[in-house]
């Protein structure tokens, strides 16, 4: 396989209308930058952008901003997770400004997991803003104003995104919340991990009814399970995560032997990707391998997931190329993603 060149801007890749692949890597747990670099190198050839989580589940890790800066130095386009759990609005503004200065444009605006499930549950949770207000904040900074109204010269070049979880109640409100996020300024959406494809399809049907798939590209979250206990942990201990009984049963049938259960986990993940391809209105996939970056290459190969940036070698030719791709050239999603993205709001 020939090695893809440097990453074009994620915004440009999204605008091309080609099916997108993004991937989240685990945060660094020590002061060694090589840990992040190693994880990123495992996935870089298979994705359009790499997500850098911010103290996932309220457990302390290396600063996401620092990790994203390391990736940017590596020539990878990072998506920086910014949460409201640990920072008030002053810190969020300075971090977003700093991110832009370090060459990090893509910021995923999250409320953040509550730290009660983390390793230091007696800390003071901040939650000065919520994800919706953080999106508004990123938009305000982009327009060249701090929250105080003071001018920023030059304004940071930010590309804010958001998440949605179709698998947590109130289910009827989730598409509306996505609409709120689009209104607040989200330019792309990444969803929670999908194991219940039926529920995801119902969610997307409502999203299409609201016309949201045409307003903002939506990437479906998928992740391989490594073992049956890992699946049970996700189901029982991670709130808002739905792991279906059918998936757990298959993982249990694969047995405790590592190679077999990992093989089954990857197989289930690939099947879910194939099933999600039938769901209209998706712009691509977001892989969350949960500290198992080694699996990404295998999943990408088997599920025929190809980063869209590979087809964007010459940015000028991008539009012309996506025209030809619509005729069935791209081993990716169906043509709906293409049509959607061309209409996608700038």
């Amino acid at each position: 396989m020939n090695r893809p060149g440097p990453f074009p801007r994620f915004e440009d890749v999204l605008r091309s209308g080609m099916p997108i692949v993004t991937c989240e890597i685990a945060s660094g747990d020590g002061a060694d930058p090589q840990d992040i670099v190693r994880r990123a190198r495992l996935v870089r050839d298979h994705v359009d952008a790499v997500n850098v989580p911010d103290n996932t589940a309220g457990v302390v890790h290396m600063s996401a901003l620092a990790a994203a800066a390391i990736l940017a130095r590596e020539g990878i386009d990072p998506i920086l997770h910014v949460t409201c759990r640990d920072r008030n609005r002053l810190a969020l503004q300075s971090d977003l400004l700093g991110a832009s200065a370090l060459g990090i444009r893509n910021v995923l605006c999250l409320t953040g997991d509550h730290l009660i499930h983390g390793d230091q549950p007696n800390a003071k949770p901040v939650f000065d803003l919520d994800s919706m207000q953080l999106l508004g904040l990123a938009a305000a900074l982009r327009r060249g104003r701090y929250l105080s109204g003071r001018e920023i010269e030059p304004a940071p070049d930010l590309f804010p995104g958001a998440t949605e979880n179709p698998f947590a109640p109130p289910y009827d409100f989730r598409p509306l919340r996505l609409m709120k996020k689009a209104e607040a300024g989200a330019r792309f959406i990444q969803t929670q991990i999908t194991y219940n494809v039926a529920r995801f399809a119902a969610f997307m049907e409502r999203v299409r009814d609201l016309g949201l798939d045409k307003r903002v590209p939506i990437l479906a979250g998928v992740a391989p399970l490594r073992s049956a206990p890992a699946g049970r942990f996700l189901r029982d201990r991670v709130p808002g995560m739905e792991v279906t009984d059918a998936v757990l049963r298959r993982m249990e049938q694969a047995g405790p032997e590592r190679a077999r259960s990992e093989e089954e986990g990857i197989r289930i993940c690939v099947e879910i990707v194939e099933q999600l391809r039938e769901v209209k209105g998706l712009a691509g996939f977001h892989l969350m391998p949960i500290r198992w970056e080694e699996a990404v290459a295998e999943i990408a190969a088997r599920a025929r997931l190809k980063p869209a940036r590979l087809s964007l070698a010459a940015p000028v030719a991008a539009v012309a190329r996506s025209e030809t791709a619509a005729d069935g050239g791209v081993p990716g999603l169906d043509g709906s993603a293409l049509h959607r993205s061309r209409e996608h709001r700038a």
Binding site: F173, R177, P239
Partner: peptide, 14 residues
């Protein structure tokens, strides 16, 4: 607990 004024977080239990 997160004083969210814009809708539920993604962690609501089943």
């Amino acid at each position: 607990p997160k004083t969210l004024r814009n809708g539920p977080c993604g962690g609501v239990r089943m």
